[in-house]
């Protein structure tokens, strides 16, 4: 006996829609929505000009249409072909916790970057990250974290003269103001 009946192959096709293909479907879907919105926004808000003097909207309109096409291509490729397959390996358990906490620390670092300033924000972030990623004592994490945070900040701000937020240590900051 040769060949498989359609009934045999159908479940195989469904099974083949693994997490990577599903993920690409989602990415294509988001791209499609973005493309539709972008094209609509461009059409209704950016001047198109005339054929001999094209306006600022002509090229973006083409880009919007290209994004719609590319997104449909991603969706089609994920649904109909097995060019990109496999499982998306997201971290689980303890590693997931670490990644999420690191993400949270990074968000807080950025949120308070200007207020705290480069020196303090970088040092606090380093202490938090060392505590999350390493297995040293809290005291060591604090010492190493401050040393690395201050070291990197001083290298860029004092040695290279890069202008970065001074925050609390700046002339208008709570701590920096005390020394003026």
């Amino acid at each position: 006996m040769s060949g498989q009946s359609p009934a045999d192959t159908a479940p195989t096709t469904r099974k083949a829609l693994d997490s990577k293909r599903k993920g690409r479907l989602v990415a294509g879907g988001i791209g499609l929505l973005l493309g539709l919105w972008y094209t609509w926004y461009t059409w209704s808000n950016v001047p198109m000009g005339t054929q001999d003097r094209p306006g600022a909207g002509v090229f973006p309109l083409a880009v919007g249409i290209a994004l719609i096409a590319a997104s449909l291509f991603v969706i089609g490729e994920a649904l109909l072909t097995d060019k990109v397959t496999g499982d998306v390996a997201f971290p689980r358990g303890e590693r997931l916790r670490t990644v999420l906490l690191m993400t949270g620390s990074l968000v807080l670092f950025v949120a308070f970057y200007q207020f705290l300033g480069q020196y303090i924000a970088a040092s606090l972030f380093m202490v938090a990250a060392l505590s999350l990623l390493g297995s040293r004592s809290f005291l060591r994490n604090v010492v190493y974290g401050i040393a690395i945070g201050v070291g990197i900040s001083a290298f860029f701000m004092e040695l290279l003269g890069v202008r970065l937020p001074e925050g609390l240590l700046g002339p208008t900051g709570i701590i920096g103001g005390l020394f003026l």
Binding site: L106, F109, V110, Y113, Q114, Q118, A122, F125, M126, A129, L130, L133, G134, Y144, I148, G149, I152, S153, F156, V162, R163, L164, P165
Partner: peptide, 25 residues
């Protein structure tokens, strides 16, 4: 070098690098 030190160190450089391009959050 322990990754626990290296990785956050690179993140700090990445953030200050992005900021210093145009001094913009």
């Amino acid at each position: 070098i322990p990754k626990s030190m290296l990785m956050p160190g690179i993140i700090v450089i990445a953030v200050l690098g992005a900021y210093s391009t145009r001094f913009s959050m």
